[in-house]
């Protein structure tokens, strides 16, 4: 087995573990962490596939996509955290 295939498989397992986390956890922050983990799993599958090209140079397109994906994931996380703060404030005011 090549390292690239192994990391792709680890990525697939991470997606599955994180999917379980998204469904089975009930705290919103834990769900958010699980979603981030799922993103990491997807990235790992992509970069693993980029490494499986013939020749020594990995495919730069998935690398660029993952770079973009990391920034979009952190933007979404920050937005979700802002929603969470708002939610807990509303709950507090309701008492």
């Amino acid at each position: 087995m090549s390292s690239a295939l192994w990391f792709s498989l680890v990525g697939a397992a991470l997606v599955a573990i994180a999917l379980y986390g998204v469904f089975a956890e009930h705290h919103p922050l834990r769900r958010l962490i699980a979603l981030n983990m799922m993103a990491s799993g997807v990235f790992l599958v992509l970069i693993g596939l980029a490494r499986q090209l013939p020749g020594r140079v990995p495919d730069p397109v998935p690398h660029a996509m993952v770079l973009t994906g990391i920034v979009v994931a952190v933007s979404a996380t920050a937005f979700a955290l802002a929603l969470l703060r708002r939610l807990s404030r509303v709950q507090q005011e309701e008492g």
């Binding site: 990391f7 922050l29 693993g48 770079l67 990391i70 952190v74 920050a78 969470l84």
Partner: peptide, 26 residues
């Protein structure tokens, strides 16, 4: 290990660093 140094830099700084700071702050 997967020859993606650009992604490694971004992950260490954004994925682990910034996301961690945001989560701990919340």
């Amino acid at each position: 290990r997967l020859d993606a140094p650009d992604v490694a830099l971004a992950e260490a700084a954004v994925g682990a660093g910034l996301t961690g700071v945001l989560l701990l702050g919340a």
